[in-house]
């Protein structure tokens, strides 16, 4: 063996990735065949790397950390200045009140609703919203910023034909915070929910762009999903109109992601 163990180990270092076969590498490989200690060294390096990879610490991000992170990103997305802390604190009090009230109402309601279709909870929340508080504004940007500072995910505020933007609020479903955009249409109210998927907020059974429809006490729900989120439009508009609006929301969502797709809004009426 003419090559030193140190040089052979450096040349055959296991993390180096693919290497050209040079005379020096060939000499190192010949050294390895004859040197048990070098074989043990390389095996031990691989072994230490393997156990560190397999059982090394990978703590998940705590939920609060995750929420704060996505709220920060959402604020950056909507251009909300981070310095508006006084306003944020004021709205935090309002939001906390809403969340508490919604939570209590949810607990009360869930006691007698174990057998319900989970989708009906959208209709319940829509009805509760007539007594709720949040932000009152017809300005899409203002509403989007309000939601962005409170939700751990991106929520679009779509402009829908014949619907007038009224404001937004938060909702709690299965302990998960969601957003609700409120509209009016000729005196009727329509709510657009976006909530994280969860055990009690199950997405529609079918995938793709299918809209699932349900009714409860005169209110219709048109719900659809994207990965991780459930969307629902709720109101007492005719079911077909609500479904058409739901499809328009989906199209707008895609347009938001892929580019504009004009020409569909005129087809929807809210009679």
């Amino acid at each position: 063996m003419t090559m030193s163990c140190g040089k052979a180990r450096r040349l055959l270092w296991p993390d180096a990735g693919p290497r050209a076969v040079t005379p020096e590498i060939e000499a190192a490989e010949r050294h390895l065949v004859e040197c048990e200690e070098c074989r043990a060294f390389l095996e031990e390096m691989r072994h230490l790397a393997r156990i560190t990879h397999e059982v090394g610490p990978r703590p998940p991000a705590p939920r609060a950390v995750r929420d704060r992170l996505f709220q920060t990103v959402a604020r950056a997305r909507t251009g909300s200045p981070g310095a508006k802390q006084q306003a944020a604190a004021r709205w935090a009090v309002v939001a906390a009140t809403i969340v508490l009230a919604a939570g209590l109402a949810w607990v009360w309601g869930s006691r007698r609703a174990a057998e319900r279709d989970p989708i009906a909870s959208f209709a319940d929340d829509h009805m509760r919203a007539t007594r709720g508080e949040g932000i009152v504004s017809s300005d899409t940007a203002v509403v989007a910023r309000w939601l962005a500072s409170r939700l751990p995910f991106a929520m679009d505020v779509p402009t829908l034909p014949n619907l007038e933007l009224r404001g937004a609020r938060l909702c709690i479903m299965d302990g998960r915070r969601g957003g609700v955009v409120e509209y009016t249409a000729g005196g009727r109210s329509v709510s657009y929910f976006v909530v994280p998927s969860g055990p009690a907020v199950r997405p529609p059974a079918r995938r793709g762009d299918d809209v699932r429809v349900a009714s409860r006490e005169g209110y219709h729900v048109a719900a659809w999903q994207e990965p991780g989120l459930v969307h629902a439009l709720v109101g007492d508009l005719p079911e077909a109109t609500l479904v058409e609006l739901a499809r328009l929301c989906m199209a707008k969502m895609m347009a938001f992601l892929d580019g504009p797709r004009p020409g569909r809004e005129a087809a929807v009426t809210t009679n």
């Binding site: 992170l69 990103v73 997305r77 992601l257």
Partner: peptide, 19 residues
């Protein structure tokens, strides 16, 4: 390039990034 795509990417790797 969309903000939603960014949030998907971040969400997928947030645990490893935090770790």
């Amino acid at each position: 390039g969309s903000s939603r795509a960014f949030e998907e990417l971040l969400s997928e790797h947030v645990d490893a990034l935090f770790g």
